[in-house]
C-alpha cells in the first residue's frame, strides 16, 4: 500500500474484515464437505469437528453410487458443457470476426440484434422452446440442452470477442491477404491472438451451463439425460432423511466446479476485472 495513504481502516482492521468475510464465504462449503466424510453419529454429535480416523465413514458415497447413476450424470454434464462451449466459442468467434472486420451495411444493426440476448433471459421463451423441441423430436436429449445453451451463450461471446478482434492490428491481416490467404485463412491466422478473450468467454459460459437446473428439468428430465445438478436435485429430494447420502451428493455436485475454479480462477478474475462486461 502507498505509505502516504491514510485509510479509515488500519492494516490490521482491513485484514480482520477480509478474514471474517472469507470465513463466511467458505464456511458452508467446508461444513458440507467435512461432514460428508463422517459417520452419522458424529455428523449430528459434533458437526463442527473435522473427520477424525475414529469418525471417518464413506457410507454416504456408497449410498449415492449404489442408488443413483452419478457417473452417468457427470458424463451428461460433461458432454453438454464441453460441446456447448466449443460451439459458442467457434460460432461466436466467426461472427465476431465478421462484425469486427467487415464494413457491411447491416453491421451495426446486427451487432445490436445479437446484443439483445445479453440482457433478456432465455428462460422467458421456455414454453415455446419446449414445444419446438417436442416438435423436432429432440426433447429429452442432451442435444436440446446444447442448442439452448449455445443460443444463449452467443450474445455475450460476440460482444466480448468483437471488442477483442477490433484491437488486432490491420497490418497482420493484410500481410496474410497479400500473401494470397483467403478470408477464412486470415480468420484462422488471427484466432490465436484472441486466445485470452476466448478463455474468458469459455469460463463465463462454463459456470452457468454446468450449474443450470431450469432447462435440464424442463427439456431433459429423463434418467438417461439428467445432468449432475438435476440428478443431485432429484436425489436430494428422495434421500432427504439420509444425511450421509445427502452430504455426499452435495459434495459430489460441488467438487468438479470447485476444481475447475481453482484451476481457472486467475483467468476468470482477470476477465471480470479487465472489463469484459463493460
Amino acid at each position: 500500500m502507498n505509505p502516504k495513504t491514510k485509510t479509515f481502516f488500519s492494516h490490521a482492521g482491513v485484514h480482520t474484515v477480509l478474514l471474517i468475510y472469507t470465513f463466511i464465504a467458505l464456511f458452508p462449503t467446508l461444513l458440507i464437505v467435512m461432514n460428508s466424510l463422517k459417520a452419522r453419529l458424529s455428523i449430528f454429535g459434533a458437526p463442527l469437528e473435522p473427520p477424525l480416523p475414529s469418525t471417518f465413514d464413506l457410507v454416504g458415497y456408497q449410498t449415492v453410487f449404489s442408488s443413483a447413476h452419478f457417473e452417468q450424470y457427470f458424463l451428461n454434464s460433461l458432454i453438454v458443457t464441453i460441446i456447448s462451449l466449443v460451439l459458442i466459442l467457434g460460432f461466436g468467434a466467426m461472427a465476431s470476426f465478421a462484425l469486427a472486420e467487415y464494413d457491411f451495411q447491416t453491421n451495426p444493426l446486427l451487432g445490436i440484434y445479437l446484443a439483445i440476448g445479453i440482457m433478456v433471459p432465455i428462460r422467458l421463451g421456455t414454453v415455446s422452446l419446449l414445444k419446438m423441441m417436442v416438435a423436432l423430436g429432440i426433447n429429452n436429449t442432451l442435444f436440446a440442452l446444447i442448442l439452448v445453451y449455445v443460443a444463449s451463450g452467443i450474445p455475450l461471446a460476440v460482444f466480448v470477442l468483437t471488442a477483442f478482434f477490433k484491437t488486432i492490428p490491420k497490418e497482420l491481416k493484410d500481410a496474410g491477404r497479400i500473401d494470397g490467404a483467403s478470408e477464412y485463412r486470415v480468420f484462422w491466422l488471427v484466432l490465436p491472438l484472441v486466445r485470452p478473450a476466448l478463455g474468458t468467454v469459455a469460463i463465463f459460459n462454463m459456470i452457468p451451463v454446468w450449474n443450470d437446473l431450469w432447462f435440464p428439468l424442463i427439456l431433459a428430465p429423463l434418467e438417461s439425460t439428467k445432468t449432475v445438478i438435476l440428478g443431485a436435485e432429484v436425489f436430494l429430494g428422495q434421500f432427504i432423511s439420509d444425511w450421509n447420502a445427502v452430504l455426499a451428493a452435495l459434495t459430489l455436485a460441488v467438487l468438479p466446479i470447485l476444481v475447475l475454479y481453482i484451476i481457472f480462477s486467475r483467468q476468470l478474475i482477470r476477465g471480470l476485472t479487465q472489463g469484459a462486461v463493460k
Binding site: 466467426m94 461472427a95 467487415y102 457491411f104 433478456v120 422467458l124 415455446s128 443460443a151 444463449s152 452467443i154
Partner: peptide, 26 residues
C-alpha cells in the same frame, strides 16, 4: 461477400431460432 455470410450464418441462425424466435413465439 460470401465469406461474410459464412462467418455470420451459424451464430445468427442458432441465436435466432433458439433464442429470439422462442421469445417472440411465447
Amino acid at each position: 461477400p460470401v465469406h461474410i455470410l459464412v462467418f455470420l450464418f451459424p451464430a445468427v441462425l442458432i441465436y435466432t431460432v433458439f433464442m429470439i424466435y422462442p421469445m417472440i413465439d411465447s
